[in-house]
Simulated assay, not measured.
Amino acid sequence: MHPHTTELTFRKSSYSSSHGQNCVEVAELPGVSAVRDTQNRDAGHLEFPTAEWTALLRASTK
């Protein structure tokens, strides 16, 4: 876990459904992207190196 996770400010991902379901929220920290399920915020979040998260998003748009 990143040392600054208490400072996370999540936003709805632009890749989330516009219907309010199946949403993913993302928070950015230096070098880390934190991701959580909007409907299960209490379950916590996953952290990925920003470069890996960016590569995943680029691959999903191809």
Rank of each mutant, 00 (worst) to 15 (best):
Lys62Asn: 15
Arg58Pro: 02
Leu8Arg: 09
Ser60Val: 04
Ala55Gln: 08
His4Asn: 15
Glu52Met: 08
Tyr15Ala: 14
Pro30Phe: 00
His2Gly: 03
Gly20Asn: 14
Val32Gln: 08
Ala43Asp: 15
Thr5Glu: 11
Asn22Ser: 05
Arg11Lys: 11
Thr61Leu: 11
Arg58Leu: 12
Gln21Glu: 15
Asn40Val: 04
Ser16Ile: 05
Gly31Pro: 03
Arg41Phe: 03
Trp53Pro: 00
Thr61Ser: 15
Thr9Cys: 09
Pro30Asn: 07
Glu28Ser: 10
Val35Trp: 02
Met1Gly: 05
Pro30Gln: 10
Leu57Gln: 14
Val32His: 00
Arg58Gly: 06
Ser17Gln: 11
Phe48Ile: 08
Asn22Gln: 10
Ser16Cys: 10
Gln21Ser: 12
Thr54Asp: 11
Arg36Lys: 07
Leu29Asn: 09
Gln21Ala: 14
Gly44Ile: 05
Phe10His: 11
Leu57Asp: 02
Glu28Gly: 03
His2Ala: 02
Pro3His: 12
Leu56Arg: 08
Leu56Ile: 10
Gln39Lys: 13
Val26Arg: 02
Leu46Pro: 00
Asn22Ala: 15
Thr5Trp: 07
Phe10Ser: 06
Thr61Gln: 15
His4Asp: 13
Val26Ile: 13
Asp42Cys: 08
His19Lys: 10
Gln21Pro: 01
Ser18Asp: 09
Ala55Thr: 13
Ser17Gly: 15
Val24His: 03
Gln39Arg: 09
Met1Ile: 08
Gln39Met: 09
Pro3Arg: 14
Leu8Asp: 01
Ser60Pro: 02
Thr38Ile: 04
Glu7Trp: 06
His2Ile: 02
Arg11Gln: 13
Met1Trp: 07
Leu8Gly: 01
Leu57Arg: 14
Cys23Gln: 07
Thr54Leu: 14
Cys23Lys: 07
Glu47Val: 06
Ser13Cys: 04
His45Trp: 13
Ala51Gly: 08
Leu29Ile: 02
Thr61Pro: 00
Arg41Asn: 05
Tyr15Thr: 07
Trp53Gly: 00
Tyr15Trp: 13
Thr5Phe: 10
Glu52Lys: 03
Glu28Thr: 08
Leu56Trp: 12
Ala51Asn: 07
Ser16Asp: 03
Val24Phe: 00
Leu56Ala: 12
Asp37Met: 05
Ala34Lys: 00
Thr5Tyr: 12
Glu25Leu: 11
Thr50Gln: 00
Phe48Ala: 03
Pro30Gly: 02
Thr54Pro: 00
Phe48Val: 09
Glu28Arg: 15
Val32Phe: 05
Thr6Lys: 10
Ser13Glu: 03
Glu52Thr: 13
Glu47His: 09
Leu8Thr: 08
Pro30Ser: 04
Glu47Gly: 11
Val32Leu: 09
Gly20Glu: 08
Ser16Lys: 10
Arg36Cys: 02
Thr9His: 13
Val32Lys: 03
Thr9Met: 14
Asp37His: 04
Ala59Thr: 04
Arg11Tyr: 06
Pro49Tyr: 01
Ala55Ser: 13
Pro49Arg: 13
Phe10Thr: 03
Ala55Trp: 09
Thr9Glu: 14
Ser18Gln: 14
Thr6Met: 04
Ser13Arg: 03
Tyr15Glu: 11
Ser18Lys: 12
Thr38Tyr: 09
Ala43Val: 03
Gly20Met: 09
